[in-house]
C-alpha cells in the first residue's frame, strides 16, 4: 500500500480557477462585468436602463433629425396632432414635438448637474462630519438641519428669484436646496465604517486623514450614496419641472416644465399640450428610479457566492 503524499494541488486549483477570470489587463472590464452581473439580476432596473437610454438617445439625436426651432410659430394655435405636427401645437402655435425633443436637454441636464452638485456638497459635509465627529459634526449637522427645515421648492424659488432665471442659477438652486439627504446618509455611513478594523489597519499603516476619507472609507460608503444620488436626479428633474411650471425656469431654453407651465390654462381644451411633455417627465423620472434600484444590487460588494 502506498501513501499518497501530494494532495496540495487540490486546494490551489480552487484559487487559481477563480482568479483567472479576473487577472490581467481586464481589471476595469472585470469590474464592469461584475457590476453588470449584479445589475441584470433585477429585471426592473434593466427596463429602467433601456428606458433611460431611449430617452437620452431621443433628446440627443431627436433635435438633429427633427430640425425645427421649438420657439418658432409654425402653425395655428392648438392644432391637434396630425401628419405635419405629430404632437400638435401649443397656445401660440409652436410645435410640441420639437419642444419635447429639445426641452429634454434642459430638463435632463439640469437634473444631472443638480444631482452632481447635491452629491458634491452632501459628500463633503457628510464625510467631514462623520469622520471627525465632535464639534465639527455638531456644527455641520446644525447647518444641515437649518437647510432641511426650509421647504425645498420654496427655497429654490427664492434663490431663482434673487439671482434671475438662467440655466445655471436654476441648476445651482436645485442643488443647494436638496443636498441634505445625501449629507446625512454619508455621515451615517462614515460613522459606521470608521469603527471597522480595516480603517484602523489603514491608520496603523500610516494613512493620513485625507487618505482615510477618500481612499479607505469613501469607496465602501458609496453604494447607498450613489443610489440616493440617482434618486436625486429624478427629484431634480421634477423640481426643475415645478420651477418652470411656475414660470421660474430659464425662459430662453425650452424645457418640459416650461411647455406644461405655459399651456396649463388650456389643458382641458388641448390635452396634447400637457400630456406629451408630462409623459416625457414621467418616463425619465420612472426610468431613473427603476435604475437606481438595480444600482443598489450591483454595487453591493459582498455578494457571497454560494459554494
Amino acid at each position: 500500500m502506498t501513501v499518497i503524499k501530494d494532495v496540495s494541488d487540490l486546494e490551489s486549483a480552487d484559487n487559481s480557477q477563480r482568479s483567472s477570470q479576473l487577472e490581467g489587463t481586464g481589471r476595469f472590464f472585470g469590474r464592469l462585468g461584475e457590476f453588470w452581473r449584479g445589475f441584470k439580476k433585477n429585471p426592473a432596473s434593466v427596463i429602467g436602463l433601456i428606458l433611460l437610454a431611449a430617452v437620452v438617445v431621443m433628446i440627443i439625436i431627436g433635435p438633429l433629425i427633427y430640425q425645427l426651432d421649438p420657439f418658432d410659430i409654425v402653425s395655428a394655435p392648438f392644432t391637434p396632432p396630425d401628419e405635419n405636427f405629430r404632437l400638435g401645437t401649443d397656445y401660440v402655435g409652436r410645435d410640441i414635438l420639437a419642444g419635447v425633443l429639445s426641452g429634454g436637454r434642459a430638463s435632463l441636464s439640469v437634473g444631472l448637474f443638480a444631482a452632481l452638485i447635491t452629491a458634491a456638497i452632501g459628500l463633503t459635509v457628510g464625510s467631514l462630519s462623520g469622520f471627525f465627529g465632535g464639534w465639527i459634526d455638531t456644527l455641520l449637522m446644525k447647518v444641515t438641519e437649518f437647510f432641511q427645515v426650509l421647504p425645498t421648492l420654496l427655497f429654490a424659488m427664492v434663490l431663482v428669484t434673487i439671482f434671475g432665471p438662467t440655466w445655471v442659477t436654476v441648476t445651482v438652486s436645485i442643488g443647494l436646496a436638496s443636498w441634505m439627504n445625501v449629507a446625512r446618509l454619508t455621515r451615517a455611513e462614515f460613522m459606521r465604517l470608521r469603527e471597522f478594523d480595516f480603517v484602523r489597519s489603514a491608520v496603523a499603516a500610516g494613512a493620513s486623514s485625507a487618505r482615510l476619507m477618500m481612499v479607505t472609507i469613501l469607496p465602501n460608503a458609496l453604494p447607498p450614496i450613489v443610489v440616493a444620488a440617482a434618486f436625486d436626479i429624478s427629484f431634480a428633474i421634477l423640481l426643475e419641472g415645478s420651477l418652470s411650471f411656475l414660470g421660474l425656469g430659464d425662459p430662453n431654453r425650452m424645457s418640459w416644465g416650461l411647455i406644461i407651465g405655459q399651456n396649463k390654462n388650456y389643458a382641458l381644451r388641448a390635452w396634447w399640450t400637457v400630456v406629451f411633455p408630462g409623459a416625457a417627465i414621467f418616463l425619465s423620472v420612472l426610468s431613473v428610479c427603476l435604475m437606481s434600484d438595480g444600482l443598489n444590487d450591483a454595487l453591493n460588494p459582498r455578494r457571497e457566492r454560494r459554494f
Binding site: M1, T2, V3, I4, V7, L10, E11, D14, F307
Partner: peptide
C-alpha cells in the same frame, strides 16, 4: 473542500496524512 468539490472516495482524502490509494 466545499460541497460539490468533495473527493469521490473518503471525504478527508485530500487532507489526510495517511491516505491510501
Amino acid at each position: 473542500p466545499p460541497p460539490g468539490r468533495r473527493p469521490l472516495g473518503c471525504a478527508f482524502f485530500s487532507r489526510c496524512p495517511q491516505a491510501l490509494k
